[in-house]
Amino acid sequence: MTFRMPAEWAPHEWTWIGFPTYPDEWPGAFEEARQQIASFANALHGKGEDVRLVVAHDGDAEVARGLVTPGVQIVVQKLGDIWLRDTAPIAVMRGTERALVDFGFNGWGGKYRMPGDEDIGARLAAMTGLPTSTQNWVFEGGAVDTDGTGLFVTTEQCLLHPNRNPDLDRGKIETLLAGSLGLSDMLWLGDGLLNDHTDGHVDNLARFVAPGVLALPETSTQDDPNAAIYADARARAKAFGVEVASIPSPGRVVVDGEVIPASYMNFYIGNAAVIVPIYGQPNDQAALEALKPFFPGRKIIGLRSDAILSGGGSFHCCSQQMPAGE
């Protein structure tokens, strides 16, 4: 039986979202990060999506209930970081039936190991009752994006990084992804964004917005720290043969003297809305307008994500969708 990982714009039954637990992971921005996560959950739920907010313990559940609208489901499961894109199970369609794939996780190359993250995928999968396969190699969902046809995009910086699977080359990785997620072809980009803690996850750089159409940031200022990375990604994508859709870059965003990996690409495609991270930058509105043509029938919603980003990610990083069964 053939199987495939659906594109994110395929219908969802629900969306998991992680909720911040440890103040040390959000220096000076913990409460604001919680509020921004709640705003994300509320925006999705307000457009009719079933949202399951994953919190680490009962105390967090009480706080979360005070921030989210009625109807957002609170799920208590031990977790460290909130980045469920990388730790939750990934759904595939086997014919008309759903199945889950749970991958190995090593704290983004051993940099951020937190109790609960190593097995949150297995525990969330068990709650669904869906058949689940376990992959005994390290892989994070944010390292790839797919257009639902079997075409995936990734970065060499992440998937070939020796801190993940030092014994795997690109051919072996493609074979493993073909056998686990239904990959049929892979577009390899180069590096991810400057100072990205994930070693260059592609969901902060490039996203499919339609079959064979890849959205990429475009610089509008001379001091954009990722200008060369964007140009290299664009050249590789065009050489591969996909259509490139240009989305304005937020440009140079500095917090406490350090350039942070701010990106509009970390949007989440819900059933009726696309939630886009914004940062109070001049290009915020232009980025929202650039995404509109690709998602007719969905509301494009920009929400502040700077506090969430202080912990290492944004809306796409903290969420994982469950496709609807057919």
Rank of each mutant, 00 (worst) to 15 (best):
V138D: 07
E140A: 00
E140Q: 07
A143I: 02
A143E: 04
A143Y: 01
V144I: 15
V144T: 14
T146F: 05
D147E: 03
D147G: 09
D147W: 01
G148K: 03
T149Y: 04
G150I: 06
G150H: 06
F152S: 08
F152N: 04
F152R: 07
V153N: 00
V153C: 14
T154G: 08
T155S: 13
T155K: 12
T155Q: 12
E156R: 15
E156M: 11
L159N: 12
L159S: 08
L160F: 09
P162Q: 04
R164V: 01
R164A: 08
N165Y: 04
N165K: 00
N165F: 06
D167H: 14
L168G: 09
L168D: 01
D169G: 15
D169L: 09
D169W: 09
D169C: 01
D169E: 12
D169R: 07
R170S: 15
R170E: 14
G171A: 12
K172C: 02
K172S: 13
K172Q: 15
I173C: 10
I173S: 05
E174G: 09
L176H: 11
L176A: 14
A178V: 00
G179W: 01
G179A: 12
S180W: 01
S180Y: 05
S180F: 03
L181E: 00
G182E: 00
S184G: 08
D185Q: 15
M186W: 07
L187H: 11
L187I: 14
L189G: 12
G190N: 14
G190E: 15
G190F: 02
D191T: 10
L193N: 09
L194C: 13
H197W: 06
T198N: 11
T198W: 04
D199R: 07
D199S: 14
G200Q: 12
H201G: 07
H201Q: 12
V202S: 08
D203M: 08
N204M: 14
N204I: 00
R207Y: 03
F208A: 04
F208N: 06
P211K: 05
G212I: 06
G212Q: 11
G212T: 08
L214C: 10
L214Y: 10
A215T: 02
L216Q: 00
P217Y: 00
P217Q: 14
E218M: 11
S220T: 13
S220G: 10
T221L: 08
D223P: 00
P225H: 08
N226F: 09
N226E: 07
N226K: 10
A227T: 12
A228C: 08
I229K: 10
Y230C: 03
A231H: 01
A231R: 13
D232E: 15
D232L: 05
R234P: 06
R234H: 14
A235K: 14
A235M: 13
A235R: 15
A235V: 13
